[in-house]
Write a protein that binds this DNA or RNA. Structure first.
Lengths: 274, 274
DNA sequence: GTTGCGCGTAAAGATCTTGTGATCAGGTTG
DNA sequence: CAACCTGATCACAAGATCTTTACGCGCAAC
């Protein structure tokens, strides 16, 4: 199912450029001439790309952390539509560009409806093709990060998207990137977010069944939030559903009541009963 | 500076469809035949669109709150590239699709680099063109489309899909996830729902013969509903069929009878029997 | 009135979810 | 290269929830 073969990774540059800003592309195509021309252009752009001669599994694609996938339907064969749909739906954070030979309108419509971001017909100019890929990636990026967002305060916590960090009394919570992303997502929504939603919007692709990553990060977040702001609770569990963000002050009274022992509680009960 | 002329707004439908989920498109084109064909398709989709025969200012476009703008470069004239760039950079949340006559690779590359999301060459198929627009808009949708379902009130009860919970007088009924799903389903339908229907829509698969799960959950629901809103009854049994949701106030008389103790009830029975 | 079946009710056991700590792999920094 | 940090995954325990089962009552048909 996974005959993924990586022929070359010429773009595996050594520079310390921020990968987040560069194009990470995989090309699923078998035409040597096409790949040759494309490679030249991609190299010139300092683009990190990878050429595949056979479909990779969704998991393999996830592991590549791509911005974009270019695919020739001819390589996919009969199960191509299904593969396309699966890839598009599972990797919502990745742009998918179909670049294939002559096709009918119906085929192109089908491909676009399944989730492809663009359809380019071969033969095509490499420069133009790359522009299409960049345009698609640009759009994905924009969708993911709606520019600079203003800082927001919740209880004793301040969330600063511009600094990728949260603070309590000017003191950083020392959140890691993922921790911050989850806190940011949660704090930006009043409603209950299901784990799948959180995972998809933070990781960029569908959550595997039984994955506990969201739980683990929520635990770390709570830990740091509690350490920085002990009298408040921020992330609430909705059993069987997910999590909801809402700053709530825990009264000292309540906490004292919680500390009442069972014996004392029993005494109180009998006292009231009299 | 603002020669914007709105020729028609045929897509301004009267239905209560949520605008947030629909495509809001402006088409900047002067070809009557092209517009005719496109209009038909857009109408069929229930899409809200607007046709412009001259470039609108950026501010005017902002005011239209568009998801996408389709533009024919021929309409823009000499300052077209500049206009395109301005629009793309200023309205980063809007997809820009260039749909124009024959062009050179250099032109298309230029357009895409300036920020256009797609470039379609006329003549083209309307269906395909719309698919391209939808593909461009899709991601932005995803970010804004947390599918907020409105809260609904029935009698003294308020059902809140965003919180996965129901309330009576601001007080949570403490429904579990499944309990809520069943209440939500029932409350969203006026008719009688058979157990099999309820089971299938809540559990996601067919109900086994003789399964009493639905009954048990209805009981728990009634219990919590009664505790929170004693004067009303919400879920009604249709013997041999299923359940129906309908808020109904119960008379005070009936309630008094309900409050009669078992012993008193026995007395009453014998009294009536005499 | 009687009978059969569907329904309400309750409780116990099974199952699923979540919190938590620990471990492992991969990448980065110095 | 080694120390360190981050993120992914696992195992376990405690709780919450769901399913199953049993019993008795009410409804409808005869």
């Amino acid at each position: 199912m996974s005959p993924e073969r990586s022929e070359a990774v010429p773009g595996a540059t050594t520079t310390g450029q921020r990968a987040g800003n560069r194009l990470r592309l995989a090309v699923l195509d078998r035409d040597p001439g096409f790949m040759q021309v494309l490679s030249n252009r991609l190299d010139a752009l300092g683009c990190e790309y990878r050429s595949l001669s056979a479909p990779a599994t969704v998991d393999a694609l996830v592991a590549m952390r791509l911005n974009a996938l270019m695919v020739d339907l001819a390589v996919l064969g009969p199960g191509g539509w299904e593969y396309l749909e699966r890839v598009c739906s599972r990797l919502s954070g990745m742009a998918v560009i179909v670049c294939t030979g002559p096709s009918s309108v119906a085929q192109r419509v089908r491909g676009l409806r399944l989730g492809a971001d663009a359809w380019v017909t071969k033969p095509c100019h490499a420069e133009e093709l790359i522009c299409v890929v960049e345009a698609a990636v640009r759009r994905h990026r924009r969708a993911e990060m709606p520019a600079l967002e203003a800082a927001a305060a919740f209880g004793e916590i301040t969330v600063r998207p511009d600094l990728y960090q949260a603070y309590a009394n000017e003191i950083s919570l020392e959140l890691t990137a993922r921790e911050f992303e989850i806190l940011h997502l949660l704090s930006g929504s009043d409603r209950v977010l299901r784990r799948e939603e959180i995972y998809e919007r933070v990781w960029g692709y569908a959550m595997a069944h039984g994955d506990r990553s969201v739980d683990v990060f929520v635990r770390k977040l709570r830990q740091k939030l509690r350490a920085a702001s002990p009298e408040w609770s921020y992330i609430h569990t909705h059993f069987g559903v997910g999590y909801r963000f809402a700053p709530e002050r825990e009264d000292a009274v309540e906490r004292e009541l919680d500390l009442v022992t069972d014996a004392e509680a029993a005494e109180l009960d009998t006292a009231f009963a009299r």
